[in-house]
């Protein structure tokens, strides 16, 4: 709890700082812990429902635990026609999870996303926001291997 307060308080005096505080929390934990939202509500002096409402509005923020590596597969139209489906299937079978799930060891979370702005290299995934492009199924295991 103390940690959450320390992180959130840094943004208390910045106008509109709540969203910046959430970014800082997610940078630290890879997700936004539920209790951290209550702490944020206290620090910013707003109702808990409002603090929760802001966090849940934005799809980049995830409330509740996620893995160490967040893999996001772009499913926007340009990636879709470039073969995103096959890449997704390969990811799902390599990791043994479906999109939206986290591996049992807590290492990987697989998610779907809309365009991540790397469309010169469709289809694209990001791992902890770093983009990997021009993918095809055979490339996946090597990329996952980089995640130690």
């Amino acid at each position: 709890m103390a940690d959450y307060k320390e992180i959130v308080s840094k943004y208390k005096d910045i106008p509109g700082g709540l969203i910046e505080a959430y970014h800082a929390l997610q940078k630290e934990y890879n997700y936004i812990p539920e209790e951290a939202i209550e702490v944020a509500a206290q620090v910013f002096g707003i109702p808990k429902a409002k603090a929760y409402g802001v966090a849940s509005f934005y799809s980049y923020f995830k409330i509740g635990k996620r893995g160490q590596y967040i893999i996001r597969m772009c499913e926007s139209a340009p990636c879709h026609v470039a073969g995103a489906d096959q890449v997704l299937k390969t990811l799902e079978s390599c990791l043994g999870i479906k999109a939206g799930e986290t591996t049992a060891d807590g290492k990987f979370t697989l998610e779907l996303t809309e365009c991540v702005g790397q469309c010169q290299a469709t289809p694209v995934i990001t791992i902890n926001s770093k983009p990997y492009g021009d993918l095809y199924p055979e490339k996946i295991s090597a990329i996952l291997g980089e995640c130690k």
């Binding site: 106008p15 969203i19 910013f44 934005y58 980049y60 923020f61």
Partner: peptide, 20 residues
């Protein structure tokens, strides 16, 4: 920083977002 909401590209939504 935005946080993954396409609608925030709309200028008044963007302003709401900067306001927190």
């Amino acid at each position: 920083m935005g946080a993954g909401a396409y609608v925030c590209g709309e200028e008044s939504a963007l302003i709401e977002s900067i306001e927190g």
